[in-house]
């Protein structure tokens, strides 16, 4: 036994001595501020694998989950701006969080260098098929007729499903009770089983049960209809003009990255999104692809931050009354 242990140990040592040359260049790590397996993580892995081929360096996905994405974002904000640490950010980490948490510990614009907005996807307002309202207007009327009686599911404070509902309530002037779950996945069975009548759910997750008839989709939250759910009307079509929100994903680096480095990475991402195989796969999963320039992304994040700040303020005013 002992000899075998020593032998195995020596073998490992040989390996350890033989390996270093290959790791001479430090790999690029893409920080995902959520646990492995979620939508953001999946997107990072699909794009990350292509980025490794494109740039010829190793790319690791680092999951730094916690505090609705704040822990990972803080980590990236403090990293060296050498292009070796990137973050795949969402509207939760880089647009909603500043509005919800005054002591965030990072500024989405000042502490980060935007690289490219890569993808977005709408949310879908889904209901249990047994729930009477069949359209958005019917749902609003149903809730208004029963003040403080209707509850709905959300993926927790700051999550896309939560913000979409806050926006909806604010615009339709209704006040149903939000029941929070830790993410969309645990909330979904509650709507499937009819324990809670409705929720906003991201299109990639909602598409399968809606297709199978287990859920009814009332509306999508984007300006245009979703490509994988073409039969569901938009909010604007359903009588809520001006309602628009999407979950978005984009790459950031720490503040102070050299412009040519940003350009190099931006080009890589834009090219990856244009590859037929990658784009077909991502579209099949329910993502809409963009691939903007760094400046366009910066402008977009700026408007998003303002939008959510205004909404959170308006909602706080409603709660005060």
């Amino acid at each position: 036994m002992f000899l075998r242990t020593v032998a195995a140990g020596l073998a490992a040592l040989t390996l350890a001595i033989a390996a270093p040359a290959a790791r001479a260049e430090q790999p690029i790590s893409i920080v995902v501020a959520y646990a492995a397996g979620g939508t953001t993580d999946t997107l990072a892995r699909i794009i990350g694998a292509r980025l490794a081929d494109k740039l010829g360096t190793q790319v690791i996905i680092e999951n730094k989950a916690g505090a609705t994405g704040q822990i990972g974002s803080r980590y990236v904000a403090k990293a060296a701006p050498d292009g070796r640490t990137l973050q795949i950010a969402t509207q939760t980490t880089h647009a909603v969080a500043p509005a919800l948490y005054p002591n965030l510990g990072y500024d989405p614009l000042k502490d980060f260098t935007p690289i490219s907005l890569v993808a977005w996807s709408p949310l879908v307002l889904i209901t249990n098929p047994a729930f009477p309202p069949k359209t958005v207007q019917e749902l609003i009327a149903y809730i208004k007729a029963r003040p403080k009686e209707v509850s709905f599911a959300t993926g927790g404070r700051g999550d896309g499903s939560f913000m979409a509902a806050m926006f909806f309530n604010n615009m339709a002037k209704i006040n149903p009770v939000a029941v929070p779950f830790p993410g969309e996945a645990p909330a979904l069975p509650q709507v499937l089983g009819g324990q809670l009548p409705y929720m906003f759910c991201s299109a990639p997750t909602a598409a399968a049960p809606v297709d199978a008839g287990q859920l009814r989709g009332l509306a999508v939250t984007s300006k245009v209809r979703a490509s994988n759910l073409p039969n569901i009307p938009t909010m604007a079509e359903s009588g809520l003009p001006g309602y628009e929100m999407v979950n978005w994903w984009g790459f950031f680096g720490p503040a102070g990255m050299a412009p040519d480095l940003v350009q190099k990475l931006n080009t890589a991402f834009v090219e990856i999104l244009k590859e037929p195989e990658t784009s077909a796969k991502l579209k099949g999963l329910g993502y809409e692809l963009t691939g903007t320039s760094s400046d366009e992304f910066k402008k977009y994040v700026g408007t998003e931050i303002e939008k959510w700040a205004a909404l959170v303020k308006a909602e706080a005013a409603v709660q005060q009354q």
Partner: peptide
């Protein structure tokens, strides 16, 4: 299991009733 969902999605399979 959440990781399994991720693994399926990366393979282009949408987990769910279908």
């Amino acid at each position: 299991m959440a990781l399994m969902v991720g693994a399926m999605t990366i393979q282009g399979i949408i987990p769910g009733p279908q």
